[in-house]
């Protein structure tokens, strides 16, 4: 039963995951916390682990949610479910791409979808910042350190094109040294 729930959820998310994986972070978060499978904080760690591995962040986090909820079978089912819609839709698009690409309706839909994708990604960033203590109502030194790690990460990603895995590893070392 839990495997069916997992595959239905990720099949649906696979269909709507336009614009790469990052916009799916808040979508998956809303669904898994609603079902009581994970807390937002646990889900942030899943995103962190998903970002350390190769592959898309959406399908990696689906795999990890599945693994957390139902072990290896859950991981396999979720990974296949989130990718399967791509297989079918690519085959459909491949047949008539020129027609689709010239249709004004298609361009109108994407014109509206792209700003939503941006909104969803930044919403995920703000939500994670609140749930992980980067934004809090009371001042603490921990918050200052976390905000510095955030700012430094963003800076090296934007201006030095630093590799995301490197950023995660470096912040992990800093965290282990300071917080344990």
């Amino acid at each position: 039963m839990i495997l069916i729930n997992l595959s239905l959820l990720f099949l649906f998310i696979g269909v709507i995951s336009f614009g790469g994986g990052f916009a799916m972070i808040p979508v998956i978060e809303a669904e898994v916390t609603k079902r009581g499978w994970l807390t937002t904080s646990e889900y942030t760690d899943i995103i962190a682990v998903a970002g350390m591995a190769p592959g898309s962040i959406a399908s990696n986090s689906a795999t990890l949610v599945g693994y957390h909820v139902a072990g290896v079978p859950g991981a396999i089912v979720s990974s296949i479910a989130i990718t399967f819609p791509s297989l079918i839709l690519i085959l459909l698009i491949a047949v008539s791409f020129n027609k689709i690409n010239q249709s004004p309706l298609f361009h109108s839909i994407f014109y509206g979808l792209r700003p939503i994708v941006t909104g969803l990604i930044l919403f995920a960033a703000i939500k994670f910042a609140i749930s992980n203590g980067l934004i809090a109502s009371t001042f603490s030194w921990q918050m200052v350190i976390l905000l510095s790690i955030f700012a430094l990460s963003l800076f090296v990603l934007l201006y030095y094109k630093a590799h995301p895995v490197l950023v995660i590893l470096a912040s992990g070392i800093v965290g282990a040294v300071i917080f344990s």
């Binding site: 994670f128 955030f150 995660i168 040294v177």
Partner: peptide, 15 residues
């Protein structure tokens, strides 16, 4: 401890 730091970096990554 490491994941406290990593979570802050993940927010940076998403931003």
């Amino acid at each position: 401890g490491a994941f406290l730091g990593i979570r802050a970096a993940v927010v940076g990554l998403i931003t």
